[in-house]
Nucleic acid binder design. Structure first.
Lengths: 92, 92
DNA sequence: TCCTTATTTCGGTATTTAGCGAAATACAGA
DNA sequence: TCTGTATTTCGCTAAATACCGAAATAAGGA
C-alpha cells in the first residue's frame, strides 16, 4: 500500500522516524522529546505502523518502537539530496 | 521544502505525475482523463507546483504541465520497489 | 471590440486530520 | 488482589483538505 507517502507527510512523524534512526525508543521516551500529547503521539504511531514503517515490541508495560527497515533512512536521504532541504538533525 | 511528501500523498496527484511521466500534457488533457472537476484539478496543480514537482508553460490559452525532474520517477520507482504495491499504469 | 476556449479563483460544504484531556487497558510487582 | 506505570482508546474541537459549480481571468481570432 502507498500510504507511505501519507505517513511521511507529517513533520512530527518524520521527526519520530529520524529519532528511531538513531536508536530504538519507547513510546514514553519519544513522547518526552516531542511537544505533543501522548494520545496524539499514539495516533501517529498507528499511522506509521499502518504504513509498515515501524515495528513494535512490548516488554512489560513499555512498548519499544523500531524502524522497520533501513529503507526509511534511504528514502529520507534520497529526498534530502534531491530536493535540498532539511539540515541534519532536525526535520522541516 | 519538504512538502514534497504532502504532494505525493494524494492518489490523484500521483496519477497526474505518472501521466506526465509519459509525456507533457495540458491541464485540459489531464482533466479529460481524471474523474475530478477542473477547479479541483487546478488545486492539485498548485500543490505540485508548490512542491516544485512540475513546471508550466503557457502557449496561447493552454498551459502545458511537465515533470520538473526525472527524480519524481526515481522516487516513485524506489518506493514501488521497496514497498511492493502499485501495478504499472495505475497508481492507487 | 466581441466571442470562444482554456484555466484559475472564489465561495461553499463535507471529509479528514491533528490535537487535547479523561477514561480504559495492559502489565508487573507488592 | 490492589497499586502504579505505560500506553492506547474515546469523545470532542479546530484546522486543513478535497471537492463542486459559478464566476473571473487570460489569450487568440473574427
Amino acid at each position: 500500500m502507498a500510504d507511505v507517502f501519507h505517513a511521511l507527510s507529517s513533520p512530527v512523524r518524520r521527526q519520530i522516524l529520524t529519532m528511531l534512526k538513531a536508536r530504538d525508543m519507547t513510546a514514553g521516551e519519544i513522547s518526552d522529546q516531542l511537544e505533543v500529547g501522548k494520545s496524539t503521539l499514539s495516533g501517529h504511531f498507528n499511522v506509521l505502523k499502518a504504513a509498515d514503517l515501524v515495528t513494535t515490541e512490548r516488554s512489560g508495560t513499555t512498548i519499544t518502537y523500531s524502524l522497520n527497515t533501513s529503507v526509511v533512512e534511504e528514502m529520507l536521504a534520497l529526498v534530502a539530496e534531491v530536493f535540498g532541504k532539511d539540515k541534519k538533525g532536525s526535520i522541516k
